[in-house]
């Protein structure tokens, strides 16, 4: 997060010094700032791992948008056609995420994806209860959720 902030600041400085505040120039400044931070991160402890984290965040965004479109299409199909293919149900999902921030991030992403809705976390924060709309293949769904959690933990840890 701090690394990203510094990257934005470097991009702003680039734009100000070259006197051109257009979008393309800002992107160029961001890229050069990223390179500079990549060199710096060995010396500065706060920036550790920043250069590896940013591509992961971008990859996660792409993956998330793809999932969003896919799931939206599925829900839309079920809503719009007269026959219901859905088999809704509540499943208990065993969490690998430990801290509050990780659990909050994961449950928010799960809630944003159509077809799954996080209802509650158990009192000892070990299980997330999820209402899913399509439980035809529960194993597949659990695997997808596991993959999503793995990707999120990769970003946050």
């Amino acid at each position: 997060m701090i690394g990203f902030f510094w990257n934005i600041m470097l991009a702003l400085a680039w734009a100000a010094l070259s006197g051109d505040f257009s979008g393309m120039n800002f992107v160029a400044g961001f890229f050069f700032g990223y390179l500079a931070l990549m060199v710096l991160q060995r010396q500065v402890p706060v920036l550790k791992g920043y250069s590896r984290r940013l591509p992961r965040v971008v990859a996660f965004l792409v993956f998330f948008i793809k999932e969003l479109v896919k799931a939206n299409y599925r829900v839309a199909y079920d809503v719009a056609t007269p026959v219901w293919y859905m088999k809704p149900g509540v499943i208990a999902f065993r969490l690998k995420a430990r801290t509050d921030v990780e659990i909050m991030f994961l449950s928010s992403v799960i809630s944003l994806t159509p077809g799954t809705l996080s209802l509650d976390v158990s009192d000892d924060k070990k299980v997330l209860f999820i209402h899913a709309m399509f439980l035809q293949d529960e194993e597949q769904l659990r695997q997808d959720l596991r993959e999503l959690e793995h990707k999120i933990l990769n970003i946050l840890r």
Binding site: W84, P88, G89, I91, L119, S122, L135, E138
Partner: peptide
Amino acid sequence: PLWSGTIKDELRDN
């Protein structure tokens, strides 16, 4: 109440 087609509820017992 949940829909009658709901096939699973792992939350109710806990």
